[in-house]
């Protein structure tokens, strides 16, 4: 039998969104899609896969590398070896993918973000996305893949029929690795390096009295406030919020730089952000050289207008 197997990721009772990229790639491969799920009560769209394989293994044991291999033994026994095994490119997805590759002696390609049209080769980023490599699997055998979050979810095509359900229970689990508990990362003070959306203010803010309004803005935007060095020097914001060579290095999804001219030292701390938007009244400000989008204008006016639009 020829099929694609997805090992899903469920975290604290939530079917992770990044599974959609596993599904998207699986649909592009045009073979029956089997999806392996841990025990638990969570909704999964029944028109995404042809077969849902339910297990009685709790999510935190399901994603342990040896356990997933022991479970796969059973899957293979029941349905034969899949052509492709897809996992998410996440902490546990990659951990399991590597162990599966070693355990079953299979080729593995991680962080896959594309595929040629004949589905023969896979693309993977190298050197922090500076170049991509195209990988072929000469052996024709099964291959283990982890997919980059966001890369394939657009290719999901709903099935016309609901998926069939299969169940595997009674897998003898590994005792060499035991789950103890989930822990929240310690938060001593605000950690701007963990924020997905930073609104960063610079010297252009003018004076301290303007800052509370930025707090309000980040409140309505659900963003985190950061700043450049001069703002910290003036004691307007604490050092923990400083981005730059002598502060923190950040890589948020969006970095909205307001009133920051873009000194070399500041750029060093934020240039790898996924999307940089700059607001500055000086059209020549160097920050515009690094930004993806720019607004030439007064940062405080932009702030007030954004607040107005968001409230309205």
């Amino acid at each position: 039998m020829s099929y694609t197997l997805i090992i899903s990721e469920v975290r604290r009772g939530v079917f992770e969104e990044r599974n959609l990229d596993s599904l998207g790639l699986a649909h592009m491969l045009k073979k029956p899609v089997y999806m392996l799920l841990p025990d638990g009560q969570y909704p999964v769209n029944e028109r995404w896969s042809d077969v849902l394989i339910k297990t009685d293994i709790k999510e935190e044991l399901f994603t342990a590398p040896k356990n997933i291999c022991l479970l796969l033994d059973k899957v293979i026994e029941r349905f034969s070896m899949p052509d492709v095994i897809i996992l998410t490119h996440s902490s546990s997805g990659t951990e399991c993918a590597s162990y599966i590759a070693g355990y079953f002696k299979l080729p593995v390609i991680t962080d896959v973000n594309g595929m040629d049209k004949d589905a023969k080769t896979f693309y993977k980023s190298y050197y922090s996305d500076k170049v991509y490599g195209e990988f072929a699997v000469p052996g024709q055998g099964p291959v283990v893949i982890t997919v980059r979050s966001g890369a394939f979810r657009g290719s999901i095509e709903e099935r016309t029929h609901a998926s069939k359900e299969e169940t595997i229970v009674g897998v003898f689990l590994d005792s060499d690795r035991a789950f103890i508990e989930f822990v929240e990362e310690e938060k001593t003070e605000i950690d701007i390096t963990k924020a997905e959306f930073l609104v960063s203010v610079g010297r252009g803010v003018g004076n301290k009295d303007e800052l509370p309004a930025y707090d309000e803005l980040t409140g309505v935007l659900n963003a985190t406030l950061s700043c450049s060095r001069p703002v910290v020097d003036k004691l307007w914001l604490p050092k923990a919020r400083q981005v730059g060579q002598s502060g923190k290095t950040v890589r948020p999804k969006v970095y909205l730089a307001m009133g920051i001219s873009g000194a070399f030292q500041h750029i060093a701390g934020m240039k790898d952000s996924e999307c940089i938007i700059a607001v500055n009244k000086d059209p020549e400000a160097p920050i515009f050289q690094y930004a993806h989008y720019g607004i030439v204008g007064d940062m405080n006016k932009v702030r007030d207008k954004l607040k107005e639009l968001l409230k309205g």
């Binding site: 975290r11 604290r12 935190e60 342990a64 996440s90 902490s91 546990s92 951990e95 060499d176 690795r177 035991a178 789950f179 103890i180 508990e181 989930f182 822990v183 929240e184 990362e185 963990k194």
Partner: peptide
């Protein structure tokens, strides 16, 4: 030990 997961969560495990 603790493993880093996504979204500020870690898992504590015991490994032989």
């Amino acid at each position: 030990l603790r493993r880093e997961l996504e979204g500020g969560i870690q898992e504590r495990i015991k490994i032989k």
